[in-house]
Protein backbone atom coordinates (compact mmCIF):
# COMPACT_ATOMS: atom_id res chain seq x y z
CA UNK A 1 0.00 0.00 0.00
CA UNK A 2 1.16 3.51 -0.73
CA UNK A 3 0.59 5.39 2.52
CA UNK A 4 1.32 8.93 1.39
CA UNK A 5 2.99 10.02 -1.78
CA UNK A 6 3.10 13.57 -3.07
CA UNK A 7 4.38 13.86 -6.57
CA UNK A 8 5.33 17.13 -8.30
CA UNK A 9 2.65 19.12 -6.59
CA UNK A 10 2.14 22.69 -7.82
CA UNK A 11 -0.17 24.98 -5.92
CA UNK A 12 -1.10 28.63 -6.23
CA UNK A 13 -3.31 31.08 -4.43
CA UNK A 14 -4.85 34.09 -6.15
CA UNK A 15 -2.56 33.43 -9.09
CA UNK A 16 0.56 33.41 -6.94
CA UNK A 17 2.59 30.21 -7.14
CA UNK A 18 3.40 28.81 -3.71
CA UNK A 19 4.24 25.10 -3.96
CA UNK A 20 6.75 24.27 -6.65
CA UNK A 21 7.08 20.66 -7.77
CA UNK A 22 6.80 19.50 -4.21
CA UNK A 23 7.65 15.82 -3.50
CA UNK A 24 7.56 13.66 -0.41
CA UNK A 25 6.85 10.04 0.54
CA UNK A 26 5.73 9.04 4.00
CA UNK A 27 5.26 5.41 5.03
CA UNK A 28 3.13 3.84 7.70
CA UNK A 29 4.47 4.48 11.19
CA UNK A 30 6.92 7.21 10.23
CA UNK A 31 7.42 10.60 11.79
CA UNK A 32 8.55 13.37 9.48
CA UNK A 33 9.49 16.89 10.44
CA UNK A 34 9.17 19.78 7.99
CA UNK A 35 11.13 22.92 8.72
CA UNK A 36 11.49 26.14 6.78
CA UNK A 37 11.47 29.92 7.05
CA UNK A 38 8.28 31.92 7.24
CA UNK A 39 6.41 32.04 3.98
CA UNK A 40 8.12 29.00 2.51
CA UNK A 41 4.75 27.27 2.02
CA UNK A 42 4.49 24.91 4.98
CA UNK A 43 0.95 25.88 5.98
CA UNK A 44 -0.01 25.84 2.34
CA UNK A 45 1.03 22.22 2.09
CA UNK A 46 -0.92 21.33 5.23
CA UNK A 47 -4.03 23.07 3.90
CA UNK A 48 -3.80 21.50 0.47
CA UNK A 49 -3.59 18.08 2.11
CA UNK A 50 -6.70 18.90 4.18
CA UNK A 51 -8.55 20.09 1.07
CA UNK A 52 -8.88 23.81 1.75
CA UNK A 53 -10.74 25.21 -1.24
CA UNK A 54 -8.89 28.54 -1.24
CA UNK A 55 -5.84 26.95 -2.80
CA UNK A 56 -5.62 25.98 -6.42
CA UNK A 57 -3.83 22.78 -7.29
CA UNK A 58 -2.29 23.39 -10.71
CA UNK A 59 -0.73 19.99 -11.22
CA UNK A 60 0.67 17.00 -9.41
CA UNK A 61 -0.64 13.98 -7.59
CA UNK A 62 -1.30 13.08 -3.97
CA UNK A 63 -1.92 9.42 -3.14
CA UNK A 64 -3.10 8.60 0.35
CA UNK A 65 -3.84 4.99 1.32
CA UNK A 66 -4.02 4.06 -2.36
CA UNK A 67 -6.60 6.66 -3.34
CA UNK A 68 -6.19 9.97 -5.11
CA UNK A 69 -6.57 12.40 -2.23
CA UNK A 70 -7.25 15.35 -4.51
CA UNK A 71 -10.49 13.72 -5.65
CA UNK A 72 -11.92 13.87 -2.16
CA UNK A 73 -13.52 16.84 -0.44
CA UNK A 74 -12.53 18.14 2.97
CA UNK A 75 -14.72 15.89 5.10
CA UNK A 76 -14.05 12.79 3.03
CA UNK A 77 -10.34 13.24 3.64
CA UNK A 78 -10.94 13.63 7.36
CA UNK A 79 -13.14 10.54 7.40
CA UNK A 80 -10.38 8.66 5.63
CA UNK A 81 -8.07 9.34 8.55
CA UNK A 82 -6.34 12.63 7.81
CA UNK A 83 -6.14 15.09 10.66
CA UNK A 84 -4.81 18.62 10.57
CA UNK A 85 -3.92 20.35 13.83
CA UNK A 86 -4.36 23.97 12.76
CA UNK A 87 -1.77 26.67 13.20
CA UNK A 88 -4.61 29.06 14.10
CA UNK A 89 -7.66 27.07 15.28
CA UNK A 90 -10.82 29.08 14.62
CA UNK A 91 -13.31 30.09 17.32
CA UNK A 92 -16.84 28.75 16.92
CA UNK A 93 -19.10 30.59 19.36
CA UNK A 94 -22.08 28.73 20.79
CA UNK A 95 -20.88 25.30 19.68
CA UNK A 96 -19.73 22.91 22.37
CA UNK A 97 -17.04 20.31 21.78
CA UNK A 98 -19.10 17.34 22.99
CA UNK A 99 -21.80 17.22 20.29
CA UNK A 100 -19.29 18.50 17.77
CA UNK A 101 -16.69 15.82 18.31
CA UNK A 102 -19.33 13.15 18.81
CA UNK A 103 -20.73 13.91 15.37
CA UNK A 104 -17.22 14.01 14.07
CA UNK A 105 -16.12 10.60 15.36
CA UNK A 106 -19.38 9.00 14.27
CA UNK A 107 -18.94 10.33 10.76
CA UNK A 108 -15.61 8.54 10.69
CA UNK A 109 -16.94 5.31 12.19
CA UNK A 110 -19.85 5.35 9.77
CA UNK A 111 -17.44 5.78 6.88
CA UNK A 112 -15.49 2.78 8.13
CA UNK A 113 -18.78 0.85 8.43
CA UNK A 114 -18.21 0.45 12.15
CA UNK A 115 -20.91 0.86 14.79
CA UNK A 116 -21.33 4.40 16.10
CA UNK A 117 -20.32 5.27 19.62
CA UNK A 118 -23.15 6.16 21.99
CA UNK A 119 -23.39 9.38 23.90
CA UNK A 120 -22.42 8.03 27.28
CA UNK A 121 -19.32 6.12 26.20
CA UNK A 122 -18.26 9.08 24.14
CA UNK A 123 -18.58 11.52 27.01
CA UNK A 124 -16.52 9.19 29.21
CA UNK A 125 -13.82 8.88 26.58
CA UNK A 126 -13.70 12.63 26.11
CA UNK A 127 -13.37 13.29 29.82
CA UNK A 128 -10.62 10.72 30.23
CA UNK A 129 -8.54 12.05 27.35
CA UNK A 130 -9.10 15.64 28.43
CA UNK A 131 -7.84 14.88 31.90
CA UNK A 132 -4.67 13.34 30.51
CA UNK A 133 -4.01 16.49 28.56
CA UNK A 134 -4.64 18.70 31.56
CA UNK A 135 -7.87 20.10 30.09
CA UNK A 136 -10.32 20.96 32.84
CA UNK A 137 -13.95 19.86 32.66
CA UNK A 138 -14.78 23.56 32.78
CA UNK A 139 -12.99 24.08 29.52
CA UNK A 140 -15.00 21.29 27.95
CA UNK A 141 -18.15 23.26 28.68
CA UNK A 142 -17.02 26.32 26.77
CA UNK A 143 -17.61 26.97 23.09
CA UNK A 144 -14.98 25.58 20.74
CA UNK A 145 -11.76 27.61 20.97
CA UNK A 146 -13.76 30.64 22.06
CA UNK A 147 -11.74 32.84 24.36
CA UNK A 148 -9.00 30.21 24.65
CA UNK A 149 -5.38 31.17 24.97
CA UNK A 150 -2.98 30.06 22.25
CA UNK A 151 -1.77 27.16 24.37
CA UNK A 152 -5.29 26.04 25.25
CA UNK A 153 -6.24 25.97 21.60
CA UNK A 154 -3.30 23.75 20.76
CA UNK A 155 -4.12 21.34 23.57
CA UNK A 156 -7.68 21.22 22.33
CA UNK A 157 -6.39 20.17 18.92
CA UNK A 158 -4.41 17.32 20.44
CA UNK A 159 -7.47 16.26 22.42
CA UNK A 160 -9.49 16.05 19.23
CA UNK A 161 -6.77 14.04 17.55
CA UNK A 162 -6.64 11.60 20.44
CA UNK A 163 -10.37 10.98 20.08
CA UNK A 164 -10.54 10.79 16.31
CA UNK A 165 -7.59 8.41 16.09
CA UNK A 166 -6.33 9.46 12.65
CA UNK A 167 -3.90 7.39 10.58
CA UNK A 168 -2.12 10.49 9.43
CA UNK A 169 -1.80 13.67 11.47
CA UNK A 170 -0.32 16.96 10.32
CA UNK A 171 0.75 19.41 13.01
CA UNK A 172 1.08 22.94 11.75
CA UNK A 173 3.37 24.75 14.18
CA UNK A 174 1.62 23.18 17.10
CA UNK A 175 4.58 24.16 19.26
CA UNK A 176 4.52 27.90 18.58
CA UNK A 177 2.99 29.93 21.36
CA UNK A 178 3.48 27.19 23.96
CA UNK A 179 5.48 27.58 27.12
CA UNK A 180 7.74 24.75 28.28
CA UNK A 181 5.10 23.05 30.42
CA UNK A 182 2.46 23.17 27.72
CA UNK A 183 4.97 21.92 25.19
CA UNK A 184 5.71 18.95 27.42
CA UNK A 185 2.02 18.10 27.85
CA UNK A 186 1.34 18.40 24.13
CA UNK A 187 4.31 16.31 23.10
CA UNK A 188 3.51 13.68 25.70
CA UNK A 189 0.05 13.52 24.20
CA UNK A 190 1.49 13.03 20.76
CA UNK A 191 4.03 10.44 21.87
CA UNK A 192 1.42 8.45 23.69
CA UNK A 193 -0.70 8.37 20.61
CA UNK A 194 2.13 7.28 18.34
CA UNK A 195 2.08 3.63 17.16
CA UNK A 196 3.42 1.60 14.24
CA UNK A 197 0.22 2.15 12.28
CA UNK A 198 0.01 5.90 12.20
CA UNK A 199 2.24 8.58 10.75
CA UNK A 200 2.95 12.22 11.50
CA UNK A 201 4.04 15.24 9.57
CA UNK A 202 5.28 17.81 12.04
CA UNK A 203 5.68 21.33 10.77
CA UNK A 204 7.83 23.43 13.02
CA UNK A 205 10.07 26.39 13.20
CA UNK A 206 12.22 25.32 16.07
CA UNK A 207 14.35 22.40 16.96
CA UNK A 208 12.96 22.38 20.51
CA UNK A 209 9.89 20.31 19.65
CA UNK A 210 12.03 17.71 17.97
CA UNK A 211 13.85 17.08 21.23
CA UNK A 212 10.61 15.73 22.60
CA UNK A 213 9.31 13.98 19.51
CA UNK A 214 11.99 12.11 17.67
CA UNK A 215 11.40 12.31 13.95
CA UNK A 216 12.62 9.66 11.58
CA UNK A 217 13.26 12.27 8.90
CA UNK A 218 13.81 16.00 8.81
CA UNK A 219 13.13 18.05 5.66
CA UNK A 220 14.01 21.64 4.94
CA UNK A 221 11.64 23.60 2.77
CA UNK A 222 12.32 26.82 0.86
CA UNK A 223 10.32 28.61 -1.80
CA UNK A 224 7.73 25.90 -2.08
CA UNK A 225 9.91 22.82 -2.28
CA UNK A 226 12.05 20.55 -0.15
CA UNK A 227 15.68 21.54 -0.58
CA UNK A 228 17.27 19.08 1.77
CA UNK A 229 16.30 15.92 3.66
CA UNK A 230 18.15 14.11 6.41
CA UNK A 231 17.89 13.09 10.02
CA UNK A 232 17.71 15.04 13.28
CA UNK A 233 21.18 16.50 12.74
CA UNK A 234 19.66 18.76 10.07
CA UNK A 235 17.54 20.38 12.74
CA UNK A 236 20.58 20.98 14.91
CA UNK A 237 22.32 22.59 11.98
CA UNK A 238 19.39 24.94 11.41
CA UNK A 239 19.27 25.83 15.06
CA UNK A 240 22.93 26.78 14.91
CA UNK A 241 23.08 28.76 11.70
CA UNK A 242 19.56 29.39 10.40
CA UNK A 243 18.23 28.72 6.94
CA UNK A 244 20.68 30.75 4.87
CA UNK A 245 22.78 27.71 4.01
CA UNK A 246 19.90 25.99 2.30
Amino acid sequence: MIFLNINNLNVSIEGKKILNDFNITINEGEVHALMGPNGSGKSTLANVLAGNEDYEVNSGKVIFKDVDLLDLNIEERAQKGLFLAFQYPVEIPGVNITPFLHASINSKLKNEKKPEIDNLSFTKLLRKNAEELGISSDMLKRSINTGFSGGEKKRYEILQMSILNPEFAVFDETDSGLDVDALRIVTEGINKFKNPKNSFLIITHYQKLLEYIHPDYVHVMRNGKIVKSGDISLATEIEASGYQNF
Binding site: A50, G51, E53, A78, F83, L84, P89, F100, A103
Partner: peptide
Protein backbone atom coordinates in the same frame (compact mmCIF):
# COMPACT_ATOMS: atom_id res chain seq x y z
CA UNK B 1 -15.44 27.74 10.80
CA UNK B 2 -16.89 25.61 8.01
CA UNK B 3 -13.41 24.45 7.03
CA UNK B 4 -12.56 23.57 10.62
CA UNK B 5 -15.71 21.49 11.11
CA UNK B 6 -15.27 19.69 7.82
CA UNK B 7 -11.64 18.93 8.60
CA UNK B 8 -13.03 17.05 11.59
CA UNK B 9 -15.18 14.97 9.26
CA UNK B 10 -18.55 16.76 9.40
CA UNK B 11 -20.40 17.16 6.13
CA UNK B 12 -20.89 20.64 4.78
CA UNK B 13 -24.54 20.54 5.74
CA UNK B 14 -23.85 19.33 9.26
CA UNK B 15 -21.24 22.03 9.62
CA UNK B 16 -23.68 24.77 8.51
CA UNK B 17 -26.28 23.47 10.92
CA UNK B 18 -23.85 23.32 13.78
Amino acid sequence: QLYYCRQRGLSHEEAVSL
